[in-house]
């Protein structure tokens, strides 16, 4: 049987999360098709066809797919199910919105946030904010999985000369009741949270949106991405998509600096698989120190500018 990956892209390039999903899919050891739905995607599809490990690129090009909604995509993908034993998506907000909708139309359950592929029907996934790891067996005829990208890596192969076949799907656009109103994207020149080598995260203690400049300055010195705790996001210091945790982004960079973050289980769920964790907090009893490789008890408004100045 074959695996289908649903690509995520910005019409010009595949998102890093899709390449990581490809890395996970390769562990299933069967041919892989990549579906690219979007508008004006012919160049993108040609590029994707050179990625080693992809057998076929399926394209679905329509003006209405420039901003694709799950209501439109799910029925078309569900109709392809007889050709695939596995359909994989990244556990991004796109993948989490779409995968269950496809699964319900196929009449099967889906598995969210797979962190390990043991065999083509056994997987590990975190439950209870990562405080337990479930091993599950999936016996659905078509298995629908979302892949936690912090637990896998993208294939490192060079582009291949033997191009994958590009095949345009001929399907009618399902009627979508959803109308786009507006999008507010947080513009940032900093690295993306889910692919950054270093992340500097600030918590409630940072105190204000203006004070976050302390965090940004250090991040920019380190070439790091910026993250935050829920408390900092709720207080409006920083954008919602930068929340790290059980219900935000799950990250595993080489180095994670938690600044003025207490270390609630929901926050730890999003960063405890980082290679090296540094905690800076003025309370020596803060729970974050129990998972940190290196701790510094200090006022962040002294320590962080000092660190920035010394780098």
């Amino acid at each position: 049987m074959k695996t289908l990956i649903i690509a995520e892209h910005n019409q010009h390039a595949l998102k890093a999360a899709t390449l990581v999903t490809l890395g996970a899919a390769q562990q299933l050891g069967q041919p892989i098709d990549l579906l690219i739905a979007g508008h004006e995607i012919s160049e993108l599809s040609q590029d994707a066809a050179t990625i080693a490990g992809i057998d076929r690129v399926l394209t679905w090009d329509h003006a209405m797919l420039a901003i694709p909604f799950s209501e439109t995509l799910a029925p078309v993908i569900a109709n392809l199910r007889s050709q695939y034993s596995h359909i994989l998506l990244a556990s991004s907000s796109f993948g989490k919105d779409l995968a269950p909708r496809i699964a319900a139309l196929c009449g099967v359950n889906a598995l969210s946030d797979v962190i390990e592929i043991i065999s083509p029907n056994q997987y590990k996934r975190p439950i209870y904010a990562g405080n337990a790891i479930a091993t599950v067996k999936n016996s659905a005829s078509c298995q629908i999985l979302t892949i936690r990208t912090s637990a896998f890596s993208a294939p490192t192969h060079e582009p291949t000369a033997s191009l994958a076949q590009v095949h345009a799907l001929s399907v009618e656009l399902p009627h979508s009741p959803v109308r786009f109103v507006k999008q507010t994207l947080s513009e940032s020149s900093r690295p993306e949270l889910n692919s950054a080598e270093i992340i500097v995260s600030g918590g409630r203690a940072v105190g204000s949106e203006a004070n976050f400049s302390v965090i940004y300055d250090l991040a920019d010195k380190l070439g790091a991405a910026v993250g935050a705790s829920r408390a900092a996001v709720d207080a409006g210091y920083i954008a919602n998509d930068l929340q790290v945790g059980q219900t935000g982004q799950v990250v595993a960079p080489s180095l994670y600096l938690a600044v003025g973050i207490s270390g609630a289980i929901q926050h730890l769920a999003g960063m405890k698989d980082s290679k090296v964790i540094v905690a800076i907090n003025n309370d020596p009893e803060a729970p974050i120190f129990s998972v940190a490789d290196y701790g510094l008890v200090a006022d962040l408004f002294d320590a962080i500018p000092a660190m920035t100045a010394r780098l």
Binding site: F94, F180, K182, T184, L185, D241, Q249
Partner: peptide
Amino acid sequence: VDGGLLTV
């Protein structure tokens, strides 16, 4: 959503 807010 990833990247910000989307109104529909």
